[in-house]
Design a protein around this nucleic acid. Structure first.
Lengths: 126, 126
DNA sequence: CAGAATCCACTATGATACTG
DNA sequence: CAGTATCATAGTGGATTCTG
């Protein structure tokens, strides 16, 4: 469990708070779009529309929502250039970069086990 | 992007198929419950009810659904003992173990940046 | 005990239109 | 261009009941 590492120690109340926060973060971030956004950003800075083009299938709305959420959690920095038309750039922060390692890991895993998974599916889908 | 590593190579059709499969897998597995199940299983074998107790807040239905999905993708092995009452055990397969490394990474990340994220949230939630 | 099936509330998502 | 708002709807997920 995500939260296990916090159990059974001195300050019960604090730890419960940390627990539920960890869980909340986990719920927020462990989703498809977040991961794809983090992957897409990588080490680059991208504008809203560039990001939208980069991530196949994401809707305007989902991109906005997930970017807000990532910004709120401090994984993404949003820089607004007060020009007309507006120019908004998104970049991964340090913590965002930290998570990127994990997401990269998952991408590698996906490609490593692709045929393996494909076979498992065929077996399952009688 | 998850799929980028497959683009621009010889056999277009095959690669597109691999692409969409990778994307499908990503969508299936990059979700909160999958991750929590993989974490909970770790190196242990657990029964349905044990798993349910282990993962706080998961409903009977979600656990069943996600276990089926993980089984279908070959990450989890389901062993049924033909007894009364039935005894069903779940274990991570090799590929499941492979993904566990990633999930562990995310757990570590969560705990490492916990206070960082908490601060970012406070700043954001004016 | 494990799980399938049902019902139902609620949420997520896409499409569309509007604003600075 | 980026973002907000609104609406319709498909889908999620919980509670409950039933079965082998």
């Amino acid at each position: 469990m995500v939260t296990k590492q916090f159990s059974g120690s001195p300050d019960e109340a604090d730890l419960r708070r940390a627990d539920s926060l960890a869980r909340e973060i986990f719920s927020d971030i462990a989703n498809k779009w977040s991961f794809l956004i983090i992957e897409a950003l990588g080490e680059r800075t991208l504008r809203f529309t560039e990001l939208r083009n980069e991530i196949e299938g994401i809707s305007h709305k989902m991109l906005t929502q997930n970017l807000r959420m990532l910004e709120r959690n401090g994984l993404v920095e949003r820089r607004v250039h007060p020009t007309v038309p507006p120019r908004v750039e998104y970049t991964l922060t340090e913590s965002g970069q930290g998570l990127r390692a994990t997401v990269d890991g998952m991408c590698d895993w996906t490609h490593r086990y692709l045929s393996h998974i494909d076979a498992a599916r065929r077996r399952f889908d009688v």
